[in-house]
Amino acid sequence: MMQTESKQQVWSARMHEQAVSGLGIKAWCVREGLTETTFHYWRKRLSVPAQPATSLIALPFVGQPGKHALQLETPHGYVIRIASLEQLGWVKGLLEVLR
């Protein structure tokens, strides 16, 4: 783990150096003795992954009174219980806060 973090730090610094060098990637890699393939590999590896879009599907309420109209469990362990259909409108805002 430590070795991976160290490599990530080194390559993060290299990405910054190339960006401020004024050189294109090819010229910078030649100057530094690196291959473009390795540069592009690390650039992709260090890029922030895109967040998956959250999509909700409205389902009709068929439960019994006193039961939850909806229960959501997030990957981070939050459990959200919506008691009434009126509260379903809160879900979008709530999910935005939890991101």
Score class of each variant (00 low, 15 high):
residue 54 T to Y: 02
residue 7 K to H: 13
residue 50 A to D: 05
residue 72 L to F: 05
residue 49 P to L: 05
residue 59 L to Y: 03
residue 48 V to S: 01
residue 32 E to F: 06
residue 4 T to N: 08
residue 77 G to N: 11
residue 82 I to A: 06
residue 17 E to K: 12
residue 60 P to N: 09
residue 99 R to F: 07
residue 72 L to K: 01
residue 44 K to G: 08
residue 73 E to D: 07
residue 84 S to H: 14
residue 82 I to T: 10
residue 51 Q to Y: 04
residue 28 W to T: 02
residue 82 I to G: 04
residue 36 E to H: 11
residue 46 L to P: 11
residue 8 Q to D: 07
residue 39 F to Q: 06
residue 73 E to K: 14
residue 34 L to F: 06
residue 58 A to L: 12
residue 53 A to I: 10
residue 92 K to N: 11
residue 7 K to W: 14
residue 97 V to F: 12
residue 44 K to H: 14
residue 87 Q to Y: 10
residue 16 H to G: 00
residue 96 E to K: 13
residue 83 A to V: 13
residue 82 I to R: 06
residue 51 Q to T: 02
residue 81 R to P: 00
residue 40 H to E: 06
residue 49 P to A: 08
residue 42 W to E: 01
residue 74 T to G: 03
residue 67 K to E: 13
residue 62 V to Y: 01
residue 69 A to V: 15
residue 41 Y to W: 15
residue 18 Q to I: 13
residue 9 Q to C: 09
residue 67 K to L: 08
residue 71 Q to T: 12
residue 25 I to W: 02
residue 27 A to T: 13
residue 32 E to Q: 14
residue 69 A to F: 11
residue 25 I to L: 08
residue 30 V to R: 11
residue 51 Q to V: 04
residue 56 L to I: 11
residue 37 T to V: 01
residue 58 A to R: 15
residue 71 Q to E: 10
residue 19 A to R: 13
residue 9 Q to L: 15
residue 94 L to C: 01
residue 64 Q to K: 15
residue 98 L to Q: 02
residue 91 V to G: 00
residue 65 P to G: 13
residue 57 I to F: 06
residue 90 W to L: 12
residue 62 V to H: 08
residue 73 E to S: 08
residue 64 Q to E: 15
residue 35 T to S: 13
residue 41 Y to C: 06
residue 88 L to T: 10
residue 14 R to W: 05
residue 9 Q to D: 12
residue 50 A to Q: 05
residue 22 G to D: 12
residue 67 K to I: 07
residue 72 L to I: 15
residue 94 L to F: 07
residue 29 C to T: 08
residue 46 L to A: 10
residue 10 V to R: 14
residue 65 P to F: 15
residue 53 A to S: 07
residue 5 E to Y: 01
residue 84 S to F: 13
residue 43 R to V: 06
residue 70 L to N: 03
residue 42 W to I: 03
residue 49 P to C: 08
residue 15 M to R: 05
residue 6 S to P: 00
residue 30 V to P: 04
residue 70 L to I: 09
residue 22 G to Q: 12
residue 44 K to A: 10
residue 83 A to F: 13
residue 38 T to V: 07
residue 79 V to N: 03
residue 78 Y to A: 09
residue 24 G to M: 02
residue 52 P to V: 05
residue 19 A to F: 04
residue 18 Q to G: 05
residue 6 S to R: 11
residue 40 H to Y: 15
residue 27 A to R: 06
residue 41 Y to K: 15
residue 34 L to R: 07
residue 20 V to T: 10
residue 81 R to W: 00
residue 18 Q to M: 14
residue 65 P to W: 15
residue 19 A to L: 06
residue 45 R to F: 05
residue 80 I to C: 00
residue 83 A to Q: 14
residue 91 V to H: 01
residue 91 V to A: 03
residue 86 E to M: 08
residue 22 G to A: 09
residue 89 G to F: 11
residue 18 Q to W: 12
residue 32 E to G: 01
residue 93 G to P: 15
residue 83 A to M: 14
residue 87 Q to E: 15
residue 17 E to D: 14
residue 99 R to Q: 15
residue 48 V to N: 01
residue 51 Q to C: 05
residue 26 K to R: 01
residue 74 T to S: 11
residue 1 M to V: 09
residue 71 Q to H: 02
residue 43 R to H: 09
residue 98 L to W: 07
residue 68 H to G: 04
residue 36 E to D: 10
residue 61 F to M: 06
residue 16 H to R: 08
residue 2 M to L: 07
residue 3 Q to T: 12
residue 34 L to H: 02
residue 57 I to E: 08
